[in-house]
Simulated assay, not measured.
Amino acid sequence: MTITTPPKRALSTGDRAGLLIMMIAGAALTVGTVVAAIMRIVDVLTSPSVEVFAEFAGTPAVAPIGVDGAGVEVALDTAVLTLTDLPVASLWSIIIQQVLLAVGVVTVVTCLLLLARSVLRDRVFSRGNTRLVNIAGLTALLGVAAYPFFGNMAANGAFAALSERTFDNVLMTVDFGSLFAVAFVAALASTVFLVGDRLQRETAGLV
């Protein structure tokens, strides 16, 4: 008599439940990000005044943090500028920034949701999953670099409008720590899935 042993699942019941929760959270994050981006674009296009996040190069400012609210000089690193007449270039920079944010989050989360669905079906390593990991990693890397770039462009235009180009605070900041971290994680995940897919195909060829 031959006894057939059912194939062993890649994930336990608890792992599957955790993965489903992460998929729901990812979908909620996507919806929230898209809604927030749309609201920001609508606000920029319709509001009489627009708030722009700006970074400073240690610019001195006075803050009411002394005794009884006395002014104390501090080094200003970030602030929110409010303008009633934002330059067109800054306006489009904010719109492009928000569109890229929404598209980037949708792309990354969609890839991860498709990957999670494949894992739930006990298909972990495959060429399709490797492509999904590569697309998600590359999109995240580009997003980390592009989002602050357009934010800086918007802020620099706001500075020029407020000071009539007399305040020189042109900054193009990039969070290299986040950039390298995303690049490392993306490269590591891509390598793991690439090697896993190769080993799985080689193993299948031996059977």
Rank of each mutant, 00 (worst) to 15 (best):
F150N: 05
L115W: 05
T46Q: 14
S12P: 01
F193I: 06
M172E: 10
D77A: 06
L194Y: 07
V35L: 14
L138Y: 12
G66M: 09
V144N: 09
A161E: 09
E73Q: 07
G205D: 13
L19W: 08
L11T: 12
V88N: 12
T46P: 11
L179C: 12
R9D: 12
V103D: 00
L11G: 06
G58E: 13
R117D: 06
A102G: 10
T203E: 14
V170G: 12
L199H: 15
T110N: 08
V80Y: 14
V108F: 02
A154W: 07
I3P: 00
D43W: 09
A116F: 03
L206H: 08
P64T: 11
R117E: 03
N169K: 09
D175T: 05
M22S: 08
A27W: 03
R40T: 11
A70E: 15
R201W: 01
A161W: 06
F184W: 13
S49G: 02
L162P: 07
M22N: 04
T191N: 00
V108L: 01
L188R: 01
A146Y: 12
A160D: 15
D122F: 09
D85T: 12
Q97M: 13
T107F: 02
R121Q: 09
Q98I: 03
L179D: 05
T107R: 04
S12N: 13
Q200C: 00
I21L: 15
G14L: 10
T139N: 11
V174G: 11
V44A: 05
F180G: 03
V119K: 01
R16M: 04
P87T: 13
D77G: 00
S49L: 04
L11F: 15
G196H: 03
I135C: 04
A79I: 07
V74R: 11
I94R: 02
T4G: 09
L142P: 00
V174S: 13
F180R: 00
G128D: 09
R131H: 13
V52G: 02
T173M: 04
A10V: 11
W92K: 01
R40M: 13
L162Q: 15
L20T: 08
T78W: 12
T2M: 13
T139D: 03
G58K: 07
D68L: 02
D15R: 12
V72K: 06
I96P: 01
G151Y: 01
